[in-house]
Nucleic acid binder design. Structure first.
Length: 843
RNA sequence: GGGCGAUUAGCUCAGGGGUAGAGCGCCUCCCUUACAAGGAGGAGGUCGCUGGUUCGAAACCAGCAUCGCCCACCA
């Protein structure tokens, strides 16, 4: 009774995955111990937002990290993969506010800060458990005991410590300046949280009547409503058209303010009329011009985007209403000039999509220049390796042009800024209230401020925890490039500031998984793919393999074919397992190895070496190709067939050894099915506790490799002949030179004879030629086949002759290339002679 | 306005100075005792265009075209 009959032909991932994950967890397979004697390896997981479910990007990134962590464990490192969740201040704000509006028709201001924060906390709690479940579905080898959440007490302490330190060191300061204001969120956001979109707008010509005399000055603007806050007009000092205008006064319509015309270099005479209106409270450039001219800004807007009391009759209107109203009343009064269509880029809030209003407000800023210097240094010197390197250069460029960072948000959900205002106007930063009568700043910190502490705050900082001591700096950070600036670069700065060491030694920037049509996945377009659905349909291992196989430095359109490819691979391996279980057990002792045994061991050995090197450099796609091609194209297609046809006494051992090696190579990429197969073939240890195959120079066997290479080519030549000439029955032939006799005879199904019977065919296979006897019946079609071969080989000869007759080639090309051509010419010339002679015989 | 990248088989994509690769799809044969989600064999490409470097370019360089992405305060 052969054992494999009891194992189904197809692997059932549903049955296996949930069971194995629990087993891994119970066994403590993912635990990492800071007191270990081993060398540490650590990755902190980019924490998913509490707002969202796992998407394809998470699946890809999670798989890559899992590959590296499991591999590190198998290579003998004490490997930690630390999981986490981000409270996602502004993102969760939006989700909860939308829900509140939808379900109760209330805004956050209706229910108040305390209640709102409570709702956020509850939502986060619920959403979090769902996300953690999804991480498990992926198979992620994370140490759950070390799960961190950015709102945990310990983590909060780290964030506040960092803020207080930066404040006391003078990096954090308060400034009244133009920020990107989101009227919907009623909060400032940072430059990086603004998305600029091409918008079809209009340029409105506005006319400002001269106070003295007749006439007006015309200005073009895209935001006419901001004229209510104008404090000056400016022209370029070299603009001769307006020499007389400088120093004149004009009247701002509706508000009646008389403002002066100044000269300033900033103005581009070729744009519009060459006259610019200055609205310091509502435009960053104007703010600077206003400062140069010593003019006070006039703010005409409320935090919610409505016009305030400075806006005369327009007070209370929304931005949009005010724009229409201003334009139509200008028109009524003859003060509206030309109105042109104008395509320009308008900033939108990254989280809610609302049009951003550049708006003057009081915010906390973090001065970046000095903090950036050490970060630049580690990137320039290559102390941090980035895959691919182009992103290292990008990061450098960005750091070189860094603006100060607005870290305060007028939101409620998040880390409240630890700045306290004393009864006598004192301002201090402290983790706790300095005493009675002190009031805390109402704002919260930018989410990314807390994220910037992630690599060390998760390990216990500011405590000198043993985890921090042992696992920091982390080994690698893997992430999508879209948060390179928002997050990665800031972690480098903060890591260097607070630990004096880089937060990670390597950065893997992976590609973005696009929708099938090659556009970005987005909920609004409805083209998202849910990885969990894929896991259900194809099996997690198959999806993981497909993602890795398809990943590269380029963004890629997700293709279900890759998951199907992974599934086919799983099936292939699964059936190899069934084969091995039905194969004779290894006998006592090593056994005598055949050339084929030596060959497959040698090949495997090389694959293991190259595979490991590829993973070390985050070349996941190439690594998958390599092991796939070996497992399927060499092991299954050839060695398994050889093991059936001409086994040696060592074959049962070698077969299991190589297959077990393949499972160990693949385990990091396809953890579930490999674990199941490993068990079936009798391994007692979990795969993460088995040894990752390492290169063994003794197994390298050039001779066996060359022999099998020729043998396989000879076999293929015979198979091709059979297929093309439609020859079924047995063939007789000479044993070609330099092939492995047993393998050739068995796989080509050619009966070796001493002499051919006279009606022969020559089958070329590179530097091997297979000579076989033909029956008269088999001879049919031989003439046509010979002509085709003669044609093909003739071209080869011609090509080599051309090259070799080029004196420059012979002189300048490397020796081995020239020599190679000579050999090819010789082999092919001989072949051509033989084939031509044979054709003559047959004609 | 700057920067980065892409353009290779019908499709999705690798590769990379020395005769063009994979998966899927297509064609022929085969349900043979691991596997039809499979096996054996095959067809299919002047590697975007134009120049240059080189003995040799699909690969390196320059320009162009097309398509992406990122950065930037022109009203």
């Amino acid at each position: 009774m052969s054992q494999h009959k009891e194992i189904p032909k197809n692997y059932d991932h549903r049955d296996v995955e949930a069971r194995l994950y629990d087993e891994w967890e119970w066994a403590g397979a993912f635990d990492a111990d800071p007191r270990s004697e081993k060398e540490p390896y650590s990755i902190v997981m980019p924490p998913p937002n509490v707002t969202g479910a796992l998407h394809m990007g998470h699946a890809l990134n999670g798989t890559m990290q899992d590959v590296l962590v499991r591999r590190a464990k198998m290579k003998g490192f004490e490997a930690l993969w630390l999981p986490g969740i981000d409270h996602a201040s502004i993102a969760l704000h939006n989700v909860v506010e939308r829900k509140l509006m939808l379900e109760e028709k209330k805004t956050r201001f209706d229910i108040g800060r305390e209640e709102f924060v409570e709702i956020c906390r509850t939502f986060a709690q619920e959403s979090r458990s769902q996300i953690l479940g999804q991480i498990k579905r992926l198979g992620a080898a994370v140490d759950w005991r070390k799960l961190r959440y950015t709102m945990d007490d310990g983590y909060v302490d780290g964030v506040l410590t960092a803020f207080v330190d930066l404040f006391n060191a003078g990096y954090i300061y308060r400034g009244n300046r133009i920020t990107n204001w989101c009227p919907h969120d009623r909060s400032a956001i940072s430059d990086l949280e603004v998305n600029y979109e091409e918008t079809n707008g209009k340029l409105y010509g506005l006319r400002y009547p001269l106070v003295e005399g007749e006439g007006y000055a015309q200005v073009f603007t895209t935001r006419p409503e901001t004229m209510l806050g104008d404090v000056a007009l400016v022209v370029n000092p070299d603009d001769e058209r307006y020499t007389d205008l400088v120093g004149c006064k004009v009247r701002v319509p509706f508000v009646g303010r008389e403002i002066e015309v100044f000269a300033d270099d900033y103005v581009d005479p070729s744009f519009g009329t060459g006259v610019l209106k200055v609205t310091p409270a509502h435009d960053p450039n104007d703010f600077e011009i206003g400062q140069r001219l010593g003019l006070d800004p006039v703010n005409v807007m409320n935090p919610d985007g409505t016009i305030n009391e400075n806006g005369a009759d327009f007070a209370g209107m929304s931005r949009e209403e005010a724009r229409k109203s201003v334009v139509s009343r200008l028109d009524d009064e003859g003060l509206l000039g030309e109105v042109k269509d104008y395509v320009h880029r308008v900033g939108h809030c990254d989280r809610c999509g609302t049009v951003i209003e550049p708006w003057l407000s009081e915010q906390w800023w973090c001065s970046m220049r000095e903090l950036a210097e050490p970060a630049l240094e580690v990137l320039r010197s290559g102390e941090i390796t980035v895959y691919p390197d182009s992103w290292r250069r990008e990061a450098i460029r960005w750091l070189e042009n860094l603006q100060d960072w607005n870290v305060s948000r007028q939101l409620w959900w998040g880390h409240r800024i630890p700045v306290w205002y004393g009864p006598d106007g004192e301002v201090v930063a402290a983790k706790e209230s300095p005493g009675d009568g002190w009031e805390q700043d109402p704002d919260v910190l930018d989410t990314w401020f807390s994220s910037a502490q992630w690599p060390f705050a998760t390990l216990g900082w500011p405590e000198e925890a043993e985890e921090l001591e042992y696992f920091y700096p982390t080994s690698l950070l893997s992430t999508a490039r879209e948060i390179m600036y928002l997050w990665v670069v800031r972690m480098i700065m903060m890591g260097l500031r607070f630990r004096g060491e880089v937060p990670f030694r390597k950065i893997n920037i992976h590609s973005i998984v696009l929708a099938e049509d090659g556009t970005k996945m987005s909920k609004s377009k409805g083209n998202t793919i849910n990885p969990l659905d894929l896991f259900d349909e194809y099996g997690t291992d198959a999806v993981r393999f497909g993602l890795l196989y398809q990943s590269s430095t380029q963004d890629f359109a997700y293709s279900y074919e890759r998951a199907a490819m992974g599934r086919a691979f799983v099936t292939k391996l699964w059936n190899a397992t069934r084969f091995i279980l039905g194969y004779p057990e290894p006998e006592e002792g090593e056994g005598e190895m055949s050339v084929a045994d030596r060959w497959i061991l040698s090949e495997f050995n090389r694959v293991a070496r190259d595979y490991d090197a590829m993973l070390e450099e985050c070349e996941f796609s190439e690594a998958m190709r390599l092991v796939y091609n070996f497992a399927w194209g060499q092991f299954a297609d050839w060695y398994v067939e050889i093991s059936k046809a001409t086994p040696s006494s060592a074959t049962p051992r070698v077969l299991r050894e190589v297959f077990s090696g393949i499972l160990r190579l693949l385990h990091p990429a396809m953890p579930f099915v490999t674990e199941e197969m490993s068990r079936l073939i009798g391994d007692e240890k979990l795969l993460v506790w088995q040894k990752f195959p390492a290169f063994n120079p003794e197994l390298d066997d050039e001779e066996a490799a060359a022999l099998l290479d020729r043998t396989k080519r000879a076999v293929s030549a015979v198979r091709r002949f059979r297929a093309e000439s439609k020859v079924d029955g047995e063939l007789e032939g000479l044993l070609p030179d330099g092939v492995e006799a047993g393998v050739f005879t068995a796989l080509a199904e050619v009966k070796p004879v001493e002499e051919l019977n006279g009606t022969n065919a020559t089958l070329p296979a590179g530097d091997v030629a297979v000579e076989i006897s033909l029956t008269d019946e088999q001879r049919r079609g031989e003439i046509e086949r010979l002509r085709k071969e003669i044609d093909r080989v003739g071209k080869e000869v011609e090509r080599a002759q051309n090259k070799l007759s080029n004196a420059n080639f012979v002189e300048r090309a490397p020796e081995e290339v020239v020599e190679g051509e000579r050999e090819k010419l010789e082999v092919n010339s001989t072949m051509l002679d033989t084939l031509t002679r044979r054709l003559k015989e047959y004609l």
